[in-house]
């Protein structure tokens, strides 16, 4: 069966699969490059197979009047239910 020259699967020129698919949405990676790290997050070390370890403060959970730790020495684990 001869190929359909207008079929997007087999077209090689403009309109073919090699020429479409440019992402239109913003990229998190690009935002980080421009604005830097998000407030309230900091790196600690590496662990295992070169894997990064990072912690966050309560500022990471809210930008509005973040609380201080109520128990000295406790971790800044995020609250349940997300932010």
């Amino acid at each position: 069966m001869p190929r359909d020259p207008h079929d997007s699967v087999t077209r090689r020129e403009k309109g073919g699969p090699q020429n479409v698919g440019k992402s239109v949405s913003g990229r998190g990676e690009d935002v980080v490059k421009k604005k830097g790290k998000e407030p309230g997050r900091y790196e600690v070390a590496e662990k295992g197979a070169g894997r990064p370890v990072g912690k966050s403060t309560l500022r990471d959970q809210t930008g509005v009047n973040p609380h201080r730790l109520t128990t000295a020495g406790s971790t800044d684990a995020p609250r349940g239910g997300g932010r």
Binding site: E29, E43, P78
Partner: peptide, 15 residues
């Protein structure tokens, strides 16, 4: 990890 405060879940990268 969470109890140790290691809450980071992702790392940046370059394509």
């Amino acid at each position: 990890e969470v109890r140790a405060g290691h809450t980071k879940t992702w790392e940046t990268f370059t394509v």
